[in-house]
Nucleic acid binder design. Structure first.
Length: 503
RNA sequence: GGCGCUGUCGUCUAACGGUUAGGACAAAUGCUUUUCAAGCAUUAAAUAGGGGUUCGACUCCCCUCAGCGCUACCA
């Protein structure tokens, strides 16, 4: 049975790198009909942020990544847990880690250490100044049992450290990187249990991975160098270690490990700006993995079918925001209008361009004017902007002029080297012609007929540009006739009129 | 400093030891066009360096260099 886990620590928002790790675990589990376990690693009390657990669960759900065991959000916004190997929150498992730490001492694989933090710090400093590797000097390693007992009795704070053999090598096979070998003499006597009684990552994750019957550990490459320590623990306890796959790191443009210090990397904020979960997931799936051909647009279903750890690369991948932006735009362009509208309406409401009406799902109020409009009218606007959207949130700035009178300088109405009179005349003739059209025929084909006729004499740009500018107040926008049709005769003429008066 | 990992266009990447080293994003140019977007076409752009092995190396081996990760009572 394949069992994998995603084990974030709740210290803030879910990180884009965390999402990728989760995605690869999820894909591997789904592909192989295995289970994905979600485990919360909250053993660092100083960095712990309770809120972030809710956030994490919500964000993963929004992305469509589900898990088979672990904490879940219940309807009342409380956290429940599902699965037979729980609890899945490490702070609820303290006793377990403490017992195994003691067991490791009994087994002779670990030992009590009573060194003070100050001593450790001074030791480090001198080691660094002498240019020798900063490591624990094993001061407490050979304390007599009597001495240990005495110290414990007099309540001297202690930690439990791993007793790493002085000699020998430790070898293991990583699924992605192949054989890797470490000299034991280069490995520190890692602290397993801190003086506050809480375990470090190394102890807690080994214990949990075993108890939760994890078959494959798929995690970031930053863990590669602690594998020997973990293996030592597995061996001491006579446990079979899971298979391991260390994923290439996600990088900032300067090639350092992807971090929030160099730009926003929280999944939540991408979602808020209007990145589609499917685009985000598609994009990060390709950071370090590819199916071996030129295709790069994949649904989650296709990813499950194609995914393989063997196709995961070894080198770090820069998180390229431009390409993500492109891909998001691509997904937006391909999206059915109803689905797109649902997303965009949310932003229009949020930015108070429109206001929902109680008990009505298909009617909205334009906030600025109080006008009641149908959802179908809004859909026309959204459809018009669809191919221009890269982030969904941009619907607000792109479509604002439909909901409010545009503000702009008269200068904007001039196409190339037109004179004031030309602009004025052109707008006036458009106005007169448009006024003759009955409301029922105020549609693009009819408008086009008129405009094209005018353009024959006056020039295309000379007619289209001032009209477009008058309707939108923008340098760049969709074409004016589509806009006029949506705006309707009254508003169109009113805006043209206003432009004429500015001249 | 020590240990480990990695090295193909600016970025993400493809290439049974045999290809004019391919694709995508970004860039540039053109077409289309009132503007923007989209679309289409085109261009520029890479095997870190040096040694081997081989008829033949991006691919295998060695050295060098570079980048990154770890080196916490963080994860």
């Amino acid at each position: 049975m394949i069992r994998v886990r995603f084990a974030p620590s709740p210290t803030g928002f879910l990180h884009i790198g965390g999402l990728r790790t989760c995605l690869y675990n999820w894909l591997f589990a789904r592909k192989n009909k295995g289970k994905l376990i979600l485990r919360i690693e909250d053993t660092d009390r100083e960095r712990f942020l309770p809120e972030s657990i809710f956030n994490l669960l919500k964000t993963l759900e929004e992305c469509g990544l589900d898990w088979d065991e672990g904490p879940v959000l219940s309807s009342k916004n409380t956290i429940k847990q599902k699965g037979r190997y729980g609890p899945y929150i490490q702070s609820q498992r303290l006793k377990i880690y403490q017992n195994f730490a003691k067991k490791l001492v009994d087994l002779g694989a670990a030992y009590y250490c009573f060194c003070s933090k100050q001593r450790l710090e001074e030791l480090r400093k001198t080691q660094i100044s002498l240019k020798i590797p900063p490591r624990y000097d094993k001061h407490c390693r050979n304390l007599s049992p009597e001495q240990v007992k005495k110290n414990l009795k007099s309540n001297i704070p202690y930690v439990i450290r791993l007793k790493v053999p002085d000699q020998g090598k430790i070898k293991f096979k990583d699924i992605i990187r192949g054989e890797i070998e470490f000299e034991l003499k280069n490995i520190d006597d890692q602290i397993l249990l801190k003086s506050d009684g809480w375990p470090t990552y190394h102890l807690a994750s080994v214990v949990d991975d075993h108890l939760m019957k994890i078959s494959h550990i798929i995690r970031g490459e930053e863990w590669l160098s602690s594998v020997p320590k973990h293996l030592l623990i597995y061996n001491a306890l006579k446990w079979k270690p899971p298979k391991m796959a260390h994923l290439p790191l996600l990088l900032n443009p300067d090639l350092s490990k992807l971090s929030k210090r160099k730009g926003d990397v929280s999944v939540e904020s991408f979602l808020q700006k209007g990145y589609l979960p499917e685009a985000l997931l598609n994009f990060i799936a390709l950071l370090g993995w590819n199916p071996g051909n030129d295709e790069e647009i994949f649904s989650l279903k296709q990813l499950i079918r194609l995914f393989s750890l063997k196709k995961v690369g070894k080198s770090g991948a820069v998180f390229n925001r431009e390409k993500l932006l492109w891909m998001n735009g691509y997904y937006i362009r391909k999206m059915p209008i109803d689905k797109l509208a649902k997303y965009c309406l949310k932003f229009l409401i949020q930015e108070e361009l429109i206001t929902p009406i109680h008990n009505k799902k298909t009617k909205f109020k334009i906030t600025a004017t109080g006008e009641i409009v149908q959802i179908n009218w809004l859909k026309k606007i959204i459809a018009l902007e669809q191919e221009r959207l890269k982030e969904l949130k941009q619907i607000v700035e792109l479509s604002e002029f439909f909901f409010k009178e545009p503000k702009y300088e008269a200068e904007l109405l001039f196409w190339k080297k037109m004179t004031k009179n030309q602009v004025k005349e052109n707008l006036e003739s458009i106005k007169t012609e448009f006024s003759k059209i009955p409301i029922s025929k105020f549609k693009k084909p009819f408008l086009e007929e008129i405009i094209l006729k005018l353009a024959e004499k006056r020039g295309r740009g000379e007619v289209f540009w001032p009209l477009r500018a008058a309707l939108t107040g923008k340098k760049a926008s969709p074409p004016p006739l589509e806009i006029a049709e949506i705006l309707g005769r009254e508003k169109t003429i009113q805006r043209i009129d206003k432009a004429i008066k500015m001249l």
